[in-house]
């Protein structure tokens, strides 16, 4: 199932046999996933399958009931709060609902990780924030509050905040949900641009199939609590696995038949 390239690459994140229960409901049933350094891995799957749960395990916000979560070779399921903090220094996160600090200005939002985690002077911080906001095409937004910005702008602020400290790994939880096509393209363009520049490893949870395939090196389908194969986008679309096949057909339409043919069949 895994291709050769995936086996040899230097691994950033590895999940092995991760299980998670919510009460008596089994959400994750032995998830295996391997994220290579510098690549983009996209986790797809129907809503409510636990994609965000996987992300929360990688971030150490949830601990699995069984299995290992290794970040750069370190198992974080047993890590203390202090060790976890060290691991998270390399992380940047764009949350599903962005989770900007709503009582702070955009400037303060982006400056917060710099103020709390570096010893830079306020002038250096201001310059860095300015640079980030420029990169995200957000001139003049610095003194506004998150509620005064549109959804797409909020996402970009979230991305600026996530990238403030040049993280090694950036997590995106549904980065384009609720945005129109143009705004999503804008986010994808910024993502592509910043990854090319900074070379971070990206883990994306997304619904935006097939567009997201263009950006990804590997696609993993989460269904029935298990990763149903982690493949390149091309392999993914040609996969024989019935669940993957079903997913590809429902999201991208039947590949060998037109809509009209399908209507005629029914």
């Amino acid at each position: 199932m895994e291709n050769e390239k995936l086996k040899d690459c230097p691994v950033s994140i590895e999940l092995a046999g991760v299980e998670k229960y919510f009460g008596s409901q089994k959400v994750l049933d032995g998830v295996n996933l391997r994220v290579c350094e510098g690549t983009t891995t996209v986790i797809v799957g129907a809503s409510g399958q636990g994609k965000s749960v996987i992300l929360k395990h990688m971030l150490g916000l949830m601990r699995p009931d069984a299995g290992r979560v290794e970040i750069f070779g370190q198992d974080i399921t047993q890590a203390s709060a202090r060790q976890l903090k060290v691991v998270r220094r390399d992380f940047g996160v764009l949350f599903q609902n962005v989770a900007l600090f709503d009582s702070m200005t955009i400037f303060d939002n982006v400056a917060l990780p710099l103020r709390e985690r570096t010893h830079d002077s306020s002038r250096q911080i201001a310059a860095r924030v300015e640079e980030l906001l420029q990169m995200m095409d957000l001139p003049g937004a610095a003194s506004k509050y998150p509620a005064q910005l549109s959804g797409g702008m909020q996402k970009r602020v979230g991305l600026a905040r996530a990238l403030a400290l040049n993280p090694k790994v950036v997590f995106f939880d549904e980065p384009t949900t609720g945005l129109d096509v143009l705004k999503s393209n804008e986010i994808y363009r910024l993502f592509h641009h910043t990854q090319a520049e900074l070379g971070y490893t990206a883990v994306i949870v997304s619904h935006d199939v097939p567009k997201i395939f263009k950006l990804s090196d590997h696609v993993a389908l989460l269904a029935e609590g298990v990763i149903q194969g982690q493949l390149t986008p091309e392999e993914f679309q040609r996969s024989e696995n019935p669940l993957i096949r079903n997913f590809v057909e429902t999201t991208m339409g039947p590949i060998y038949s037109s809509e009209r043919e399908e209507a005629a069949l029914q």
Binding site: L61, R88, R89, F91, A99, D102, L112, P113, E116, R117
Partner: peptide, 12 residues
């Protein structure tokens, strides 16, 4: 609104 989670993920 996950702002506390966000702080934790920023290692703050």
């Amino acid at each position: 609104s996950e702002q506390i989670d966000a702080l934790e993920c920023m290692a703050v």
